[in-house]
Write a protein that binds this DNA or RNA. Structure first.
Lengths: 216, 216, 216, 216
DNA sequence: ACTTAAGCGAGACGGTACGTCTTGTCTTACG
DNA sequence: CGTAAGACAAGACGTACCGTCTCGCTTAAGT
């Protein structure tokens, strides 16, 4: 999975507890809880995400959750953080348009896949400052990783050297998030490709340089 | 304001109650409550939007709110609906890029203005299916109104006649919503203009026709 | 029925409204409502006796009930009053014990009959001052009527002339009310007869004269 | 006080919670609440006995009361149970009439004393099945304890050996409850003594044997 | 291996908000 | 004029979660 994913396979820093006793029960419980949060989230939605339900599903006592994560926001933040930093190496297709298309297809897959972990986490992050900040860290991490796509295109001479990488990426990917997260519309054929192509065209035309020259 | 705005100035259909007794107390109370929802929302945020607080601020009894709006979702839906359908006539600047830029500047103003009604409502709509559907109606209404911009550009011969209007509009506006609502980043100079320009360039290049021809 | 009974057959004074329009809708509605109160009472109990349910069952609007009876207590009071004053002529069996036994059997029948109107009204009367006072009027009316039993026994020379009639009656009947209303126990064979016999024995022995002489 | 009395002095089984942590806060809160129920009952009456008022007076939160007692009926049941089983040893005066008179005077004192705890609890018990059953347990406990009076009289040869103790006791005490609880009349001199004397006379005459012989 | 203290299970609590129910008042409209 | 229709204020109800606390018990970590 390109984006947010289960913590059970991750090697994250432990924000909630600083890993004092990594050896046994403590760590096992953390993984059970994180897993339970994701399951609750995709099954019942961000609104039914109660500490009680998470604790019950994780087979852990309520107080244990409160002791380590403090509140629901802490849980969400930990889950998001668990997905942040997952290694991701963009494929190289040889062209900016191709690279962006590949990226967008991965994003679309993440947003439309079942269970809808990514969409659920984005929605949930609106309900907590902690989760919101964790999500910001996640976005920043992702877009920083993606920038290599644009740099490679610049190195190939496809686009102006002064092209602002982040702008290209946002132009290419924003329509997908808009479509699935805000408009909440069903998948639409060609959406990912079209958005990637449009961003590539604009980038080639120099629309994302810091000082764009004359454009149509 | 281009986007969501106070119900007190709107002429909406009354979804919650169908205006049986338009004459007096009933309608007055509706306006008090709608206003209170907006104030609560921008002051305390979507999570503090409780029926109790709304009722108290509106100077109305809790049960009255429950009777007419059923729950928080109903309140939000009514508020969003109250903003839907507000007349909006896009300015004509003579070029697609100019029109999209003007549009984007209005959207940016709506998203960054104080109080941040629009952003708050979008965020809040994640808390309720009813509110979510109302927001979908709102988006649809907006984008349908905006389509005239693209049609005029096609009539002028700026862009291919087969250009899909909604795609152009999403490409132009999505980066703004992405930036302010999902990434929650501060205003960035040139953002609105750049997104508009990029979408215009791509549209001219034919990236939004149903069968895009060879693009770079 | 000896005791409290349906208003529909009674000819009572109208305390709540004073029979302004005995002929038509007004009186008809009163009877419908009184009947509905009794039905609700015996079906659902004193606790489920809501004005809404009564009005619905009577086919009358809530406001009509409130206008005429003011509140639940008023309804109950009217129902009790409707049962007060029903003509009752005690049978004469020729002996005090026989008369009291006949009386007790009637009381037992009223308390154990289905539907348990009497018991329900007594219980309900605890919840309203108005109903409570109405019930006191009812008790007083009943015991006054019963006194003739004791007077006849005195005239026959069965018991001392100075016997206090009310005391005899209470001694005879109280065990029944105690058993069915307070102890809420099931019918017990011989209960009514035994209580009547005991009271008669005591009366003959002079236990209910104002200044009882030497008793065992 | 002979009858129902404050829980703070009782040694009852804890029906609501089984006394898991007898040492501290839990038990202290129980006593506060029970005390508050009694105070509310005698001050404001059975109808004003709301969980909110009890909680406020006990200095405890609403939810705590709901958690442990479930509803008003549970509260009342616990209060009644707290009074059940209080040790009571009937005085021996040497004669049945004397014993019954002493008993009746205690009952009268309980029913007319200030605050009128007993009468209030009896009335309140009509509001709840749970309270009603608790009161039945209470009555049964009381009458079982009183039976020794009758047995002693039988042993002394005052009354037939086959005399049914419970019948004698009901005949003696029922008029008091009738007078104060159902008729709601003011105290009347001689009432307690007269009822006791009448029951004693009837018992001596054999009115309460299972097969009463010829009586007047 | 043996202590020792971190972490967990259990469960009550104060507290906020929920959404429902009933009461009794009021206003408007109808016949 | 009396009734129907229905909104309203008031307030209790019983529930669900939240986050806190205290008390024992388990168990991993450091000696």
């Amino acid at each position: 999975m390109t984006h947010l994913r289960s913590a059970s396979a991750s090697e994250t820093v432990d924000r909630a507890g600083a890993r004092r006793r990594p050896g046994g029960r403590t760590e096992r419980i953390r993984l059970q809880v994180i897993e339970a949060v994701l399951l609750e989230l995709v099954e019942s939605g961000y609104d039914a995400l109660t500490v009680d339900a998470v604790a019950a599903r994780a087979g852990v006592h309520r107080t244990t959750v409160y002791r380590r994560w403090r509140d629901v926001g802490g849980l969400l933040a930990d889950v998001v953080d668990a997905a942040t930093g997952t290694d991701w190496e963009p494929e190289s297709t040889g062209s900016l348009r191709g690279d962006l298309t590949a990226l967008n297809r991965q994003i679309e897959a993440a947003l439309t896949g079942e269970p809808p972990v990514t969409a659920a986490l984005i929605a949930a992050s609106f309900r907590s400052g902690k989760a919101s900040r964790a999500l910001q860290r996640f976005w920043d991490d992702r877009y920083t990783r993606f920038e290599v796509l644009v740099r490679r295109a610049a190195e190939r001479g496809e686009i102006p050297a002064a092209t602002h990488a982040r702008h290209v990426l946002v132009a290419a990917t924003a329509p997908l998030y808009h479509h699935f997260v805000l408009l909440r519309m069903p998948p639409e054929p060609g959406l990912a490709d079209r958005a990637a192509a449009a961003a590539a065209v604009a980038a080639v035309a120099g629309a994302f340089t810091d000082a764009p020259q004359n454009l149509p």
